[in-house]
Design a protein around this nucleic acid. Structure first.
Length: 605
DNA sequence: AAAAACTGTCATGTC
DNA sequence: TTGACATGACAGTTT
């Protein structure tokens, strides 16, 4: 995420500078070109900036609709031709968007580095340019700097420029004109931003005010256009996130973006995008592609597995028998872990064949994929169908994600490929290693029931089976054609899943009870200590009272006199309180025998 | 390597 | 009768 933010910031800065340079540069060389010819790509750049500014990508066709640039038209979400070809099923379009996700990840990382270089280079240029007094000198300076660039960058620059000249896409007018144009066309307005909203760097605003020309390689702007586009397509990380609240609307940006982002080569006709890169970069591209492919969220691959199961019809009883060979299973099913990898491998197999690790999904490919999706299907309803029935928030919403990733590795469909082929999905080159690593990981992460369900091609996820209400569960069982084995396994899965949750709750409760009891013990111990302290204090108070009473007793007796005026001996007499509050002097013998000998020596206290 | 903790599963009982 | 749930017991896994 940080890298994405960094990328966007860097590109934001670089793109604005390049935009300014491009307009100024083109105004020097091609003043006769129409503004519309530059409008679309520049709009795109600004829209790209808007993403970095506003935090979301305003992926609307209107961004591309107003320009006359054939490149922009090609960059549109879907060509009219392609739209006709492509099935209209909404979910079927989505894979194109996410399908190139891993490649876009790769490009994103690559772009990140490229932008780093670009931004650093631009900063250097800016520093040098500030010392120049006129734009001509600045222009010469930039030309010199281009010559000083690494070979691959210079090559990229010259190639792009040649490309522009050949295609007649060079346009020219001032940046102010551009902004006026953009703001004067509401139908092409950039969603969510206005020119005033764009925090243009000081260099740009200065450039606008002073009409100073900045010289930036516009070809880089175009190439970054492509790459950033891909990067931005990647930006909705929720592609790889299991978002229960995701709706078809949230997928819409992918639909709109996919076609013009899937193939960057199309953005520059006749140009191989990889040709811009040095062998080192190509190598890096390969590395990042594979690494990122492997780094894809395991959960997504789990969904892939489930979805592939739901769409597969090449049921292999051997796999099932191997998988369900475990002795502890109900329903007579068992699972031999030693066969997991093979089973999963076959379960993950698709009906598509990869053709080289190009990493880009063209529109043609996406349409092929649509055909594929229409071709597959067995006795079980499509997962997407399930998704729209009862379990919109269950695991099946991941079918979109599944199709993304699935399509990511699906390049060309070979309709003639036999569906019963054990390995219809071939992983190109080093991807074999990645696939095996992925399969190991996913297989390791799958629970036993998930593997069983996969082996029996049960078109429901374990979570669904366990979590749905009993009514939905029963209706689900009756609605789909399921064998006895499948029904039995589903019921076992549900029973085990329920019991698992119950056991977890039970243990949690037990733990809570233990914790509560421990807490009670602590509280009681504290209370005991408090009571001990209170008892000690009470004893002390009692002793004090006793002492006071004793002193008072002797004080009273010291003042008492008998009939003859002699002091009363406290050993022979005792003081006794009556109910009315009077105090009597009672001889101890009488007091002990219960007889009261009243004297008139009473004294009130 | 042993022990404790954790986890999944089964059997059984209750509601 | 059926399903959900709770819980003791056991076994396998992890720490």
């Amino acid at each position: 995420m940080c890298s994405v933010v960094f990328l966007l910031r860097a590109f934001h800065k670089a793109a604005i500078k390049e935009l300014a340079w491009a307009t100024s540069q083109l105004s020097h060389f091609k003043p006769q070109l129409k503004k519309d010819q530059l409008l679309s790509p520049l709009k795109w750049l600004l829209a790209s900036l808007s993403f970095s500014l506003t935090g979301y990508w305003p992926c609307h066709m209107s961004l591309y609709g107003g320009g006359g640039d054939p490149r922009a038209a090609r960059s549109g979400p879907l060509d009219a031709k392609e739209e006709e070809k492509a099935p209209v099923e909404p979910t079927a379009q989505v894979p194109d968007a996410g399908g190139c996700a891993s490649e876009e990840n790769e490009v994103l990382r690559e772009k990140h580095e490229a932008v780093d270089h670009s931004s650093q280079r631009e900063e250097n240029e800016e520093r040098v340019s500030a010392q120049k007094e006129n734009s001509l000198q600045q222009n010469n300076e930039d030309e010199n700097k281009v010559a000083e660039k690494p070979d691959w960058e210079a090559e990229k620059t010259t190639e792009s420029r040649n490309e522009r000249h050949l295609n007649g896409t060079d346009t020219s007018f001032s940046l102010e004109d551009l902004f006026q144009l953009l703001s004067s066309q509401p139908e092409n307005s950039l969603e969510g931003i206005s020119l005033g909203d764009i925090p243009l760097p000081g260099s740009i605003s200065d450039g606008m005010n002073s009409s100073a020309h900045y010289h930036v390689n516009f070809s880089q702007a175009i190439s970054q256009d492509v790459n950033l586009h891909e990067a931005i397509l990647l930006c909705p990380n929720n592609t790889f996130r299991r978002n229960p609240t995701r709706t078809s609307q949230s997928q819409e940006p992918f639909l709109q973006l996919n076609s013009h982002t899937t193939n960057p080569e199309q953005t520059l006709p006749g140009t191989n995008s990889t040709g811009f890169l040095s062998p080192v970069d190509n190598h890096m591209r390969n590395l990042t592609s594979q690494d990122l492919l492997y780094d894809l969220d395991v959960n997504i691959f789990d969904e892939i597995n489930l979805m592939s199961l739901a769409t597969e019809d090449d049921f292999d009883p051997i796999d099932v028998s191997q998988l369900f060979d475990e002795p502890d299973s109900d329903s007579g099913l068992s699972l031999d872990s030693s066969h997991n990898s093979t089973s999963v491998t076959k379960s993950n197999s698709s009906h598509c064949v990869c053709e080289g690790a190009t990493g880009y999904c063209t529109d043609h490919e996406s349409s092929s994929h649509h055909d594929l999706e229409g071709a597959v299907g067995g006795d079980y309803p499509e997962p997407s169908k399930l998704c729209h029935m009862d379990h919109s928030d269950s695991g099946f919403h991941g079918d979109l994600t599944f199709q993304h990733i699935f399509h990511n590795h699906t390049y060309h469909l070979q309709p003639s490929a036999p569906e019963s082929t054990s390995e219809p999905f071939s992983w190109p080159g080093r991807s074999q290693k990645i696939r095996s690593r992925y399969l190991e990981d996913t297989d390791r992460n799958l629970s036993r029931d998930e593997r069983r369900a996969k082996a029996l091609h049960i078109p429901f996820s374990v979570d669904e089976i366990v979590g749905m209400p009993v009514d939905s569960f029963n209706s689900m069982l009756s609605r789909y054609y399921l064998t006895d084995l499948q029904v039995s396994l589903i019921r076992d899965i549900r029973r085990r899943g329920k019991n698992k949750v119950a056991a977890q709750n039970c243990r949690k409760r037990k733990l809570d009870i233990i914790l509560n009891l421990e807490n009670d013990v602590c509280n009681l111990q504290a209370k005991k200590e408090t009571l001990k302290r209170e008892r000690t204090q009470c004893n002390k108070a009692i002793n004090i009272m006793k002492q006071k009473l004793h002193d008072l007793y002797h004080d009273v007796f010291s003042r008492l006199r008998d009939d003859e005026g002699r002091p009363v001996n406290p050993n022979h007499y005792a003081l006794q309180c009556t109910h009315d509050g009077s105090v009597l002097l009672v001889p101890k013998e009488l007091g002990a025998s219960g007889h009261k000998k009243e004297t008139q020596k009473g004294k009130r206290k």
